[in-house]
Amino acid sequence: MLKVSDLHAYYGKSHILQGVNFHVGEGEIVSLLGRNGVGRSTTVKTIMGEVAPQGSIEFKGQEIAGKKSFEIAHLGLGYVPENRDIFPSLTVRQNLVLGMKSNKPQGRWNIEEMFSMFPNLAERGDVHGGALSGGEQQMLCMCRTLMGDPDMIMIDEPTEGLAPKIVEQLAQLLQEIANRGVSILLVEQKLSIALKISKRLYVMGHGKIVYEGTPESLLKADDVRGEWLEV
């Protein structure tokens, strides 16, 4: 589904991504782990066209490096940003409409279905996005991206600031999304959710992938966790 090869990116003169390589298969949940500042968010921003890339990014067999963000989204790649970027003056329903790529909902998801999956959002359909709790905003942001019927979504730190109960719900939702054939790249700092739902995972350090494995193998790799993950 997604294949990133020798990806480099710069912020001014700072060399942030220094040759990132990884791939995500169809229907897979893959996690990209690492401490703050190692380049995880920059990786997804570069894939999404927000940061100028050097190297190769293939999505569904097509080279997308250098394409504009809206073109990449139209190819079926969705992105849920770290800061959620809920539109505070728009209602929940309007936020969802914004995710649709055309006037009529197409593909796997529609607003009613989203509301049935998230009764909380259904009850607050006409409430402004800015009035939602952090957890509700995270769910709304994810639903908004799904409304565009992506084949793959990249989610940047979805558990940031959420209560454990909400994180649990989020994990269930991600599993449900993957069951419907949507690949997921989960960018996380916390190991718990990644170990629980990922099929494979990558660890980043100093702008590169420093470890690739399964949740089971990472649990056994004390040296990797100690050097690159634990604070």
């Binding site: 963000s69 139209h74 940003p81 970027d85 539109f87 728009l90 790529k101 991206t145």
Partner: peptide, 18 residues
Amino acid sequence: IIIQAAITHPQTVANLGH
């Protein structure tokens, strides 16, 4: 709705395919 959103969050709106 897209115009209103693009005023404040142009990159997010672009990421949604607009």
